[in-house]
Structures are given as C-alpha cells and as structure tokens.
Computed example of a mutant assay.
Amino acid sequence: MKFNDLARKAAKGSGPPSYGGSVYPEDLIRFSLAYGAVGADEIERLSEQHGWHEDGLLEDGTRVMLLARWAAVCVAYGRGGVASLQYLLTDRTLATFAIAVLEEVRTESCVTALLDYCMSTTAVSDEPDDPFWRALGALNALTSFDDGLVPPQDQQEKLGDLVIETFASATTSHQQTLCLCALRGAPIEGSLE
C-alpha cells in the first residue's frame, strides 16, 4: 500500500467519514507494519480528522466498525512495536485488538508477549471473543502450522504447561479443541500424553 492510499480509502465510502470510508482493520495493520512511526502519525491524523468511532453501537442502533480502537492499537505498534502491544494487553477494551495485531506481526517476540499474557491472566468468560481465548488462538496460529514460528525450547515448555493446565479446566468443547490445537506448537516430550 502506498502512503497516500490510506487517506484516499478513508475519504471513500457511502456512509459518513466517521464510519471509516473504505478503510478496514487489515489496512491499518498493514499500514503500521509498513510505515512504523510515520504511519502511526498518519493513522492518528486520519482517525481524528474523520472522527472514527470507538463504540460499535450508535445511539440510533446502527452498528459501525470500532475503527478508532483499531487505529489506537496500530498507532501504538507503529510507535513502540511489540512492547507497546504487550502493554495494551492489560486494557480489556483494547486487548483483542492488540492480540490481532500481534498475530499479524508474526515474530518470536509476539509469541513471548502472548504467552506471557496467557500465563498472567485467566478467561473471564467462556465466549471465544474473551481476550484469553483469543490470545491462545493467536498462539495456535503463530506456532502450529508448517509455516509457523518455532519457539525456543523454554517457550515450548511454557506453552505446553499452559495448554495442559488450561485443557484441564476448559468447560466447552471449543476450548478443549483450541487447547489441543495449540499444543502442536509445543511438540515436547509428554505433550501427546
């Protein structure tokens, strides 16, 4: 994406500019990955200029994209990298957005951040959108496939311990399945058992 493309996409669209034009979260993520701090400044400028929404439900009942939250997380990543996203994981209103960006960044430090997060918190609900379950799903996506990251042995052991402990307390078949899938990222002795 060229630098000016984001501003053009933000100006397009049939709805009010506050709906984001034709900008999608994936655009913001790619933009922050490509342009870093300069991209963060541009995302922040566009969010303020167009008044992107932070709440997904308007007073008239219309549902809109939470583009202001996506923008805040992408700005944080552009300016401070994975460390900034790790900090945002402590904010429940931004945690799932930060998790989504960590999943797209795809580095070993992302695995560390997600693993540390999962080990320091618990699920508040059984819903798949709960930040804990989202983070575990991101760990699965980052480490369990042929093109995935291969964590160092100590991280594999932590991931294995986390998943086994989580599986034991899982209350739904979705949670248990997610645990079993995430265990593929920790092919250490004892995992199969």
Rank of each mutant, 00 (worst) to 15 (best):
6 L>Y: 01
8 R>L: 12
8 R>D: 12
8 R>Q: 15
9 K>A: 15
10 A>P: 00
14 S>F: 15
15 G>E: 13
15 G>C: 14
16 P>L: 15
16 P>T: 15
18 S>G: 07
20 G>P: 01
21 G>S: 06
22 S>W: 13
22 S>K: 13
24 Y>P: 06
24 Y>W: 12
24 Y>D: 09
24 Y>L: 14
25 P>R: 03
29 I>T: 08
29 I>R: 04
30 R>G: 13
33 L>W: 07
33 L>F: 14
34 A>R: 09
34 A>T: 13
41 D>N: 07
43 I>R: 00
44 E>W: 07
45 R>G: 04
46 L>K: 01
46 L>M: 06
47 S>A: 14
49 Q>T: 13
51 G>F: 03
51 G>L: 04
51 G>W: 04
53 H>F: 08
56 G>M: 09
57 L>Q: 14
60 D>I: 07
61 G>V: 02
61 G>I: 04
61 G>A: 05
64 V>T: 07
65 M>D: 11
65 M>E: 11
66 L>V: 10
67 L>N: 01
70 W>C: 02
71 A>E: 00
71 A>M: 06
71 A>H: 01
72 A>L: 07
73 V>M: 02
79 R>K: 13
80 G>W: 05
82 V>N: 04
83 A>G: 09
84 S>V: 05
84 S>E: 14
85 L>M: 08
85 L>C: 06
89 L>R: 02
92 R>I: 10
92 R>T: 13
95 A>I: 04
95 A>S: 11
95 A>H: 02
95 A>W: 01
96 T>M: 07
96 T>E: 08
99 I>T: 04
100 A>H: 10
103 E>A: 10
104 E>M: 11
104 E>T: 09
104 E>P: 10
104 E>W: 08
108 E>R: 14
109 S>Q: 13
112 T>N: 15
115 L>E: 01
118 C>D: 02
119 M>C: 09
119 M>A: 15
119 M>V: 09
123 A>H: 05
125 S>N: 07
125 S>C: 08
127 E>N: 11
128 P>I: 07
131 P>H: 06
131 P>Q: 05
133 W>L: 04
136 L>S: 04
137 G>K: 03
143 T>S: 08
147 D>N: 10
149 L>N: 03
149 L>P: 01
152 P>Q: 12
153 Q>I: 13
154 D>N: 15
156 Q>I: 07
156 Q>P: 04
157 E>D: 11
159 L>T: 00
164 I>R: 13
164 I>M: 12
165 E>L: 15
166 T>D: 00
166 T>K: 02
167 F>S: 10
168 A>L: 15
169 S>T: 13
170 A>T: 06
172 T>M: 06
172 T>E: 09
174 H>Y: 10
175 Q>W: 06
176 Q>I: 08
180 L>T: 12
181 C>F: 12
181 C>Y: 14
184 R>Y: 10
185 G>I: 00
187 P>K: 07
188 I>S: 05
189 E>G: 10
190 G>E: 03
190 G>V: 03
193 E>F: 13
193 E>N: 12
193 E>T: 12
